[in-house]
Amino acid sequence: MEPILEIEHMSVYFTQYERGIRRRVLPVIRDLTLSVEAGQIVAVVGASGSGKSLLAHGILGILPYNSHMEGEIRYAGEPLPRERSAELRGKEIVLIPQGVNYLDPLMKVGAQLRKGSRDEKVRERTSRALRRYGLSEETEEMYPFELSGGMARRVLIASAVTGIPRLIIADEPTPGLDVRAAKRILGHFRELADEGAGILFITHDLEQALTVADQVAVFYAGETIEVASAADFSDVENLRHPFTRAIWRAMPEHGFHPVSGTQPYPGSRETGCSFAGQCSASTETCRETDLIPLRECCGGMVRCLHPGKEASL
């Protein structure tokens, strides 16, 4: 099937001020490759600070002005420059953001979803979208502060589906929700994917990602280190990268094993694999090879010189 979104070798750099007037350029995403097909949910899993949200901003063309991007993003087979994504976002490409903060606190929910239009058709469409997620007419007359966490999340989803989106980017859509509410939200994603949309589901929570995703891309320090199918996670032996195995083993139900060390800070990394500092299987070559490529491996992709080896437990 034709991928709806393809990202190849994307890098994002930030220019920042250090003390005083000195500046430095930070690479926050490095050589990222990812693709989403229609009808597919691709979860992007990574620690906070690994560059997940910037990926979403990069696709939507809303990266801050002190950053710049390299590499290529293709949408439905065609390149997606900033102008085109500006044109498509909110229509074909939609963002489901993290929380109520993204709603205008001074505007009623209904008016916000209609984006100010008084057209009868638009009114009909938005109330249908709200009804679909179990939100009654009254919700339209509510202000965002009157919504509970779960309702706000459903309003945000409803706002994304007032049109017919082809690509949905959900950036941490479930934090702070209890398990039942989160499950319901994720169920809505599955429905949308089954209707033909491609979904990029950005989260830090692997357990949740596995409940709905088809593909999982694992992020570490601004790089995709592994792309695996969700089924691969049923057995740790199928996983390719030592970090992915480490996450798997860190799940409470799989032993809750910690690995030592932390994700390196962007810019502090010199050469070599970024996970080398936390990985016991790392060798001299791991630390010295610059930019290990993402390559095919047993039905998925991995960025590792020794795939299949265990990290320190």
Binding site: V45, G176, H204, L206, I247, A250, P252, F256, P258, V259
Partner: peptide, 14 residues
């Protein structure tokens, strides 16, 4: 640890 990734979560609780 609700906002943290699994590895950090495991480290912290350990």
């Amino acid at each position: 640890s609700a906002m943290l990734d699994l590895v950090t979560q495991a480290q912290i609780w350990d």
